[in-house]
């Protein structure tokens, strides 16, 4: 079982978790998730199949994602749940706030 360090109360998801949640706003199967993450991070974050499998199992247990009901597609697809969306949105707020502060400090140095 993969341990994920994600903490709902404290926010701060791991990058792997956040990327998986983002990828599942549209239903995707395993390989599509790997491709999506590879694309959005320009190959910086490459997920191994074993790691992805462990993460998907953990996220299902947390109730953040669910396997899709049969869509005719042979491969098993997953999608994000309402709870998962809540967690992802909270993370977005946290990141926004953080980048705002960083902008003020780092950006200020450059321009001001």
């Amino acid at each position: 079982m993969t341990a994920l360090r994600d903490n709902v109360k404290g926010g701060a998801l791991t990058e792997v978790t956040f990327c998986i949640l983002l990828s599942l706003y549209t239903p995707r199967h395993g390989y599509a998730i790997m491709q999506f993450i590879d694309e959005i991070t320009h190959g910086r974050l490459m997920l191994g199949a074993g790691t992805l499998y462990g993460a998907l199992t953990t996220l299902q247990k947390k109730g953040w994602i669910v396997p899709c009901k049969k869509t005719g597609e042979r491969k098993k697809e997953y999608e994000i749940t309402a709870l998962g969306k809540e967690v992802a949105e909270k993370e977005l707020l946290r990141l926004r706030e953080l980048s705002h502060i960083a902008d003020r400090i780092i950006g200020g140095e450059h321009h001001g």
């Binding site: 993969t2 341990a3 994920l4 490459m46 997920l47 191994g48 993460a55």
Partner: peptide
């Protein structure tokens, strides 16, 4: 041409 590793995150490697 792309790397082929099944376990890529540190937590997962420790568990494995």
């Amino acid at each position: 041409g792309k790397p082929f590793d099944l376990h890529t995150s540190y937590e997962d490697q420790i568990a494995y």
